[in-house]
Design a protein around this nucleic acid. Structure first.
Lengths: 209, 209
DNA sequence: CCCGATTGGATAGTTGTACTATCTAAGGTA
DNA sequence: TACCTTAGATAGTACAACTATCCAATCGGG
């Protein structure tokens, strides 16, 4: 397809597509002359991916670039690839293997999970727990155990669908599954709150207070 | 305490505190003369809250302002208050009561939950589902049901701790609980993935691939 | 009570991100 | 052939979140 069709299919403005091309987020089309190039489905898909990561997940373009790079050329170690991808997901915190994350360490010990200070999610957990604390809502043991049990069940659902054979696809699935399903889970939790509140407080609860 | 102590306690630079004061995010201290004012614990707490919302949750200051306003002066309807707070949480999507959200509607019907197009989380769910689809990873029915069950259990844990008597505190708890625990849940899910992958693929899995 | 440090209040400047617009020249197209 | 589209380059914009400076009025230790 030509540029005009790509614009229409993707819904992204011309100036923005050109910007993404300049920035190397989008591969150039196959040139068929000095003023034309043809684009394929992969360009439409890539644009959808960029927009999803920026608009839905809320990533800055620099992080999008990192993730696209990991999908296009994953590192040989699948764990490290996913770890690096997670590092740029919000809340972006760099993991320092030498640092100590006391809250995260205690929490993980409590629920019997691996503590690896080199993994970005550990730093993220530490930061989240510290933030909850500093705001006057520290996470209690009961809540921690409850969360852990159900989060583990959710993770099992995720892992069950991971394509086991093809590394590149598995990386894409892992990265996107982490990034794309997170907002969905968040929305579902918010809706569950509303649903529960309605049930617990009765149908007129929306009008009360 | 005086300004210098507030700076030291909060760790926020002077220029930034002044900026927050100008922007009305932080209440001025009690003036004791033309060049001095005294600040209290509530100022320290407020600064921690602002930093948590910006740095951990990743909110723009405009959204922080909305949330602070809702905590300081909640609307009489607790549901609407929480709804308005959720509207500014990422992924920020405005709910349009007149619009139709087909994917969210279908998903909620599937799991037997209330569908209210005026609630921001419905628009957020729609957007998340559409993004997953456009990226080639549509959410399947099994995954939806699995997620729903465990998310509902998590929401029950949340609701169980909600202070029932004081509306203002309940609003603060609801808003902060939604915003502050979300990153923690996200981090826990990421860690659960790692933990599961290690168990399933064996201890040497980190080195494989 | 004096002098350097601190503060409040105002204003201007900086940095970074993500575009958006314009221009030119060369094709392509009806 | 006349107009439309495109590639490629460059410049400009808009906004957010600070950051820095300046001034004048204290405040507080010696």
């Amino acid at each position: 397809m030509k540029m005009s069709e790509l614009l229409q299919r993707s819904g992204v403005p011309l100036a923005t597509v050109k910007y993404y091309l300049r920035e190397g987020l989008l591969a150039p089309g196959e040139s068929t002359g000095a003023t034309t190039a043809i684009y394929g489905e992969e360009h439409v898909r890539r644009l959808a991916l960029i927009r999803a990561l920026t608009e839905v997940v809320g990533l800055p373009l620099a992080s999008v670039r990192t993730i696209l790079g990991l999908i296009d050329e994953p590192e040989p170690d699948r764990f490290r690839t996913l770890g690096r991808a997670i590092e740029v997901l919000p809340p972006a915190v760099e993991a320092d293997p030498g640092a100590d994350y006391p809250r995260a360490r205690a929490a993980l010990a409590e629920i019997g999970q691996l503590y690896d200070p080199g993994y970005a999610a550990v730093a993220q957990l530490e930061r989240g727990l510290a933030a909850a604390e500093s705001v006057g809502m520290p996470m209690g043991t009961e809540r921690l155990h409850g969360y852990a049990r159900h989060v583990m069940a959710i993770a099992e659902i995720d892992l069950a669908q991971l394509p086991g054979d093809d590394t590149s696809r598995a990386v894409e699935y892992s990265v996107l599954g982490t990034a794309v399903y997170e907002p969905i889970l968040a929305a579902m939790r918010r809706l569950a709150h509303q649903d529960l509140a309605h049930r617990m407080l009765g149908p007129a609860a929306g009008e009360r207070d």
